[in-house]
């Protein structure tokens, strides 16, 4: 029993940390740069499929299965999501916030449709299976392997976290926050706002692609239903709960929301008869939705919130810069 629980906990943590990587990517886009991406699931899917096609065994009926090393798959997934984001961002980042939200939402829907329909590339509704796991031959039991993979995952999260912390605490991070707070002011100081936003968007999406590759390798099997908009919704709930603009908050939010989601899932499974399980599972989404709304209403900066970006000595006089939502009263819905 205790062993079962430990096995489950390892499995839980691997997936929670997978979400943490997604959440860190979104934090770079929204938390630090103020880019409203509702297409997280799409970039996650690009990373997962690219890695699966690069590392998977040859498939007679479809392109790929190149049997390449896992590391190449992960790099490929990261790169593919980043390049896709460059294209998407180039076309949409000049749009206002809410149009960006709608278009990124549409991109995620379209990517999911491609995954579902282009059987020659993605395997269609059946997806891609038998995606190899690194060093799988070295371990005798699945539990042992998962423990190893958890270590690998922790290293990955630590790497992404460390890299992002270095970036956002340096000059580039200050520039991104300046763009987020006041685009016009940043531009008037000679900063190339458009390019910087595009780089932040692509880098954040590349991190989401890396999370996708990590996910595909761990699961060993991917299908279009792993990349529904509910993933985007979960990651947003994680970031808002943890506190956007704070990388530690992003990781904490991922673990908490995934914990809540899993507990709700287990409860539904235990309490409801089999024929009501699908209906009960829907309640998980409702629960996370209520949490998201509650945080937005009661504590918009999340559990951790953004650290003060000014000297502590000026605290008495300065007003804290809070959520990345302090854009000046946005104008009417059309470009007026």
């Amino acid at each position: 029993m205790a062993l079962d629980l430990a096995t489950y906990l390892v499995f839980f943590l691997i997936l929670a940390l997978n979400y943490a990587v997604l959440c860190l990517g979104l934090n770079l886009q929204w938390g630090f740069t103020g880019l409203f991406n509702v297409g997280v699931a799409g970039f996650f899917a690009i990373g997962a499929y690219t890695s699966a096609i690069l590392t998977g065994p040859p498939r007679p009926e479809a392109v790929g299965g190149f049997d390449l090393p896992v590391l190449i798959g992960w790099l490929g997934g990261t790169l593919a999501a980043g390049v896709a984001a460059l294209g998407v961002g180039w076309a949409t980042l000049r749009l206002r916030h809410d149009y960006l939200a709608i278009t990124t939402f549409g991109i995620a829907v379209t990517i999911q449709l491609v995954a579902l329909n282009e059987e020659w590339l993605t395997g269609g509704a059946f997806g891609i299976e038998a995606i190899p796991r690194p060093l799988a031959a070295w371990f005798t039991s699945p539990t042992q392997y998962n423990l190893f993979y958890l270590g690998l995952t922790l290293a990955l999260v630590a790497l992404v976290f460390w890299g992002l912390e270095r970036l956002v605490r340096g000059p580039w991070g200050r520039l991104l926050r300046a763009i987020r707070e006041d685009e016009v002011a940043a531009a008037s100081l000679g900063k190339d706002v458009r390019t910087q936003r595009l780089i932040a968007f692509a880098l954040g999406s590349a991190i989401m692609g890396l999370a996708g590759a990590h996910f595909a390798t761990f699961m060993g099997f991917i299908a279009p239903e792993s990349f529904l908009p509910v993933v985007t919704f979960q990651v947003w709930a994680m970031l808002i709960l943890g506190g956007s603009g704070n990388n530690r908050g992003a990781v904490l939010g991922a673990i908490l929301v995934w914990g809540l989601w899993s507990v709700a899932g287990v409860t539904v499974k235990a309490l409801l008869p089999p024929d009501l399980q699908v209906r009960g599972a829907a309640l998980q989404v409702v629960l996370i939705g209520v949490v998201l709304a509650g945080v937005l209403l009661i504590r918009p900066r999340g559990l951790m919130g953004e650290e003060r970006a000014i000297s502590p000595h000026t605290q008495a006089t300065a007003t804290a810069s809070t959520a990345p939502s302090s854009t000046p009263a946005s104008g009417g819905p059309d470009a007026r």
Partner: peptide, 9 residues
């Protein structure tokens, strides 16, 4: 909040 918080909500 701002308009964008409304969109998230």
């Amino acid at each position: 909040g701002s308009a964008i918080t409304l969109v998230i909500a």
